[in-house]
Every structure is written in structure tokens, then in C-alpha cells.
């Protein structure tokens, strides 16, 4: 388990969201991760042509981009998405085999900068994205102890 990439841990876990997506970790090189995904029929938006909602790509890319960031950390710490920019080029079809790729380009002032793409089996893009992730966000203790108004204490 200790040698598993964070993405591999996420998609192989009993996490209810991860179980929904048939995803296989393909490997990582530096801050780049590759994942194979089968587009789930539960997220079909248009039954007429069996295409998925764009939110599917948003969920996948947020997950693997976060995983790419986790893979670059030298010590485990909580992270949080602070910005996500999604471009949806086409809708994935249910059952379609997709490749997800995320690259953590760099980190500056505790903010990680990431790009991601979701491609069809023939290489045609389904979605491309860029995102920013805050490193070292606060854990549950802050939320559990905080009774003061949220405006005085923030996790990010």
C-alpha cells in the first residue's frame, strides 16, 4: 500500500465515487499520471445517443489532477482544489474507454499548478482542464473545534 500512487489508492479504494468509475492507474512519471477509465452508464445525460454529462469529465479531471499533485509531495498533507477551468470538447459515450492524463507543472507559494486532459481511445479530446490546488490545508480538527462564524477561520 505504501508504494501505491495516491491516484491508485483513490481508484482502488472503497470510496463510493471511485467505485463508480472503472479506472486503472497506468503509471506516473514525475508529476505526470496516466489513468484508463471506462465511461460509466450511470452518468448518461442524453439517453438518445448514450452520451455522458460534462460533469463526468469534471469529476474525473479534478480527481486525477489532485492525484498528480499528491504524487509530487514529499510528505503527505491535505490539499484542496481552489480553481478549476474546464473545456468540454465533446461528450464521452457510455462504455467508451478513455485515457486521463494530469501534469503537475509546478508549485509556488503552496499552490500547485496542474493541467489535465481526457482523451478517447482514438486520441480525440473529450475535455482539457487546468487547475490550482492549495497545499497543506487544515484538517478536521479545525472544523470540529470551530464554533465561531466561518468568516473568522478558513481551511484554505
Amino acid at each position: 500500500m505504501a508504494d501505491m500512487h495516491p491516484i491508485q489508492l483513490f481508484f482502488s479504494s472503497h470510496h463510493p465515487l471511485a467505485k463508480k468509475v472503472e479506472a486503472t492507474f497506468e503509471g506516473s512519471v514525475g508529476g505526470t499520471v496516466y489513468v484508463q477509465i471506462a465511461a460509466p452508464s450511470d452518468l448518461v445525460q442524453r439517453p438518445e445517443d448514450n452520451t455522458l454529462h460534462s460533469g463526468f469529465a469534471t469529476i474525473i479531471l479534478d480527481s486525477i489532477m489532485g492525484g498528480a499533485v499528491m504524487g509530487t509531495l514529499t510528505q503527505v498533507m491535505p490539499i484542496a482544489t481552489i480553481g478549476l477551468s474546464m473545456h468540454h470538447l465533446r461528450r464521452a459515450t457510455a462504455g467508451e474507454k478513455l485515457t486521463g492524463k494530469a501534469v503537475c507543472t509546478g508549485t509556488h507559494n503552496d499552490v500547485a499548478y496542474v493541467t489535465g486532459e481526457l482523451l478517447g481511445a482514438d486520441g480525440t479530446p473529450v475535455a482539457i482542464a487546468s487547475g490550482t490546488f492549495m497545499l497543506g490545508t487544515r484538517g478536521t480538527s479545525i472544523r470540529n473545534k470551530t464554533t465561531a462564524p466561518e468568516t473568522t477561520e478558513s481551511r484554505i
Binding site: 470510496h15 463510493p16 465515487l17 463508480k20 454529462h53 460534462s54 460533469g55 463526468f56 469534471t58 469529476i59 474525473i60 479531471l61 479534478d62 480527481s63 489532485g66 491535505p78 484542496a80 482544489t81 478549476l84 474546464m86 484538517g139 478536521t140 472544523r143
Partner: peptide, 24 residues
């Protein structure tokens, strides 16, 4: 829904699910 959870430790909603809500 339980399957919306992103971080099971703090039980926050997955960022992608929030994004999907915005798009929908």
C-alpha cells in the same frame, strides 16, 4: 448522497461534483 463524498475524512463533497452541479 454518500457517493458525492470527495474526502471521506472530513466528509466534504467532491470538487468535481460541485463543478458538475454548476454545469448542470
Amino acid at each position: 448522497q454518500e457517493h458525492h463524498i470527495g474526502n471521506p475524512i472530513i466528509r466534504s463533497v467532491h470538487g468535481g461534483v460541485v463543478g458538475a452541479l454548476i454545469e448542470c
